[in-house]
Design a protein around this nucleic acid. Sequence first.
DNA 1: GGACGTGGGAGAGAAATGACCAAAAGATCC
DNA 2: GGATCTTTTGGTCATTTCTCTCCCACGTCC
Lengths: 362, 362
Amino acid sequence: MTKRSVGIKDVAAAAGVSVTTVSHVLNDVAYARVGNETRERVHEAAQRLGYGPNRLAQALRTQRSGMIGFISEEIATTPHAGRIILGAEETARARGYNIMIINSTSTGSQDSRESDVADLLDRQVDGILYATMYHRKLSVPKNLAGVPAVLVDSEDINHSVSSVIPDEAGGARLAVQTLIDAGHTRIGMINNTDDVPATHSRLKAFKDTLADAGLEFHEELVHSELSEVPGGYQATLRVLESPNRPTAIFCYNDRMAMGAYRAAGKLGLRIPEDLSLVGFDNQQLIAENLYPSLTTVALPHYEMGAWATKNLIDAIEGKTDLQLLSAHPTVLPCPLVLRHSVASPLSGADDGSAELSARTNT
Amino acid sequence: MTKRSVGIKDVAAAAGVSVTTVSHVLNDVAYARVGNETRERVHEAAQRLGYGPNRLAQALRTQRSGMIGFISEEIATTPHAGRIILGAEETARARGYNIMIINSTSTGSQDSRESDVADLLDRQVDGILYATMYHRKLSVPKNLAGVPAVLVDSEDINHSVSSVIPDEAGGARLAVQTLIDAGHTRIGMINNTDDVPATHSRLKAFKDTLADAGLEFHEELVHSELSEVPGGYQATLRVLESPNRPTAIFCYNDRMAMGAYRAAGKLGLRIPEDLSLVGFDNQQLIAENLYPSLTTVALPHYEMGAWATKNLIDAIEGKTDLQLLSAHPTVLPCPLVLRHSVASPLSGADDGSAELSARTNT
DNA sequence: GGACGTGGGAGAGAAATGACCAAAAGATCC
DNA sequence: GGATCTTTTGGTCATTTCTCTCCCACGTCC
């Protein structure tokens, strides 16, 4: 049934040399002195037999498996995880590594997390990537200590392992600034009620950006709800019923923004003419498909996966010391994705002909 | 830096027995007769030292790696892939296997696909799962022959490798029947323009279901467009401008359904009172968040991943012969997900008080 | 000029990686 | 002294890597 796979010794026999020589030739060992004619023969034989090294045996011998363990919470629930995996897989493969995936639940016990890590360690992975579903702080499994590891989208409470996270504040500033640049002066925000870093940092960035622009912050223009569509709908209605109705709203995420679209529709407000919106997350399925499409801020999932993997491999290969990085998480920018939900506010009630005359204030 | 990981010989030394005995005890080898007291000592020592077998070495010796290769096209672009991976990972892990992921591009050359497989084979995976982005027929890489493998969401042109696919037709029938059961007699469909199995089988199921219910099929109530939101919008407008305007539309997918919502909105039609809609795919982000939420048909991604993995492992362990399964793909049901986009049609123009009086026709 | 020594090129041998397994050896008992 | 129970020895898996041998040319010495 199984076609016995060809090994180094088959190649050696075919080329009429010893296994040592084959190994030397195929690995381009620096100190090995092998004649050119012999080299040729070896390569030819390997080619002809379709030889591929048994990476398990290599790993056993060299104590380096070329495998990276990837622990991800709830792989499936969000499309975001896919981008992280993709970033990790592509950079890993470019450097000859492969990724081994383990799914973990965010509700799992500390013990189960540890056994996830142990599983990977038994497989002799060279390093571990630990990705969470959303940005937060956590305490890593004990047995992760001493293993090259990088946290993706979360921070270690003890700052013992390095991590990479999105620049929530920077992204939020970008979003709000976009509204300010379009000429809005009364800007509302619909926020999340969860106690996660994003909630606080996006709100803070909102306030800061307004302040920097010399705009006043109005408490009554900020309302919080569950970060889903219905929450966005409710919060938006509340924001818009303020006597001091804003002309633009910064939404905690795209799902809440989707609720905001509906709220605007209910009140007969057109987007972006009567109400400009900016979201967060760049969930393509939503942002691209709303009408008009939603201007939003993208989380750098692919980039985080790639960054984490690059640095993990550098550490594995001794090119970097992860310890140095672990004091503070690395922060990656959240770029703005321009679509069509932002316009200048209608200039008073006089004409209504205001178009997308985006004006930039220096 | 590296805490030398404990090996079987450390355990042996600690327990004061030979390596062999440790192996016997820890693997519960049937023929090995080891005293109870010794067993105890071994277990205790293993526990105390935190011993975990080096699975690479085990694999090398036993010729079984306990690893399954997972090749997926475009892991990131669709949330669906995540569900397949999850299904595969969970069932694999329950049986002591791990999953190694490789991302492939749907546009890649035949050579690159083969090298993906070769990569996995060099890693000594016990079997390979090959998942595509959407249901279609393909010709598998040559070097996949002879390796236990299962295709997920696609079929092999040559029927040489087993596969598992969704029951497109069954799902479509369910969708259409739901509309019929609600009392609709003039039902339209907006279809995809791509030449993929789903396009044809969903249309055929649409016609068949109408016929089975004794309803006439009207060519002008079916329009095709690109299977995205704008396409759904356009197609719906065309369907609805028929003089014989339907009261319900079966949408090729949820994205097109989203376009249909907008088209309905533009024409002043309320969903579901004036127009009932059923989608396909159950893309939660869309289906759950549209207003009203969309009744749709779910693709069994998790189940396909799980089925494929279960059968792959069974084959690896000699409990099943995949050859027997490869003649015809295994078809998994697509369940209906009831939400709020379907209602009875308003009974003519007389009252308009028709409510959700779902009537079932036997 | 032949024996000896030297040096380096080309390749082979063998140990080691961590675990499994068949067969053989040692201990215990009657 | 055989039979039974328990443990050890040694080979194996596919590689890498350190050490070794072989071989020949060249130079030197007596």
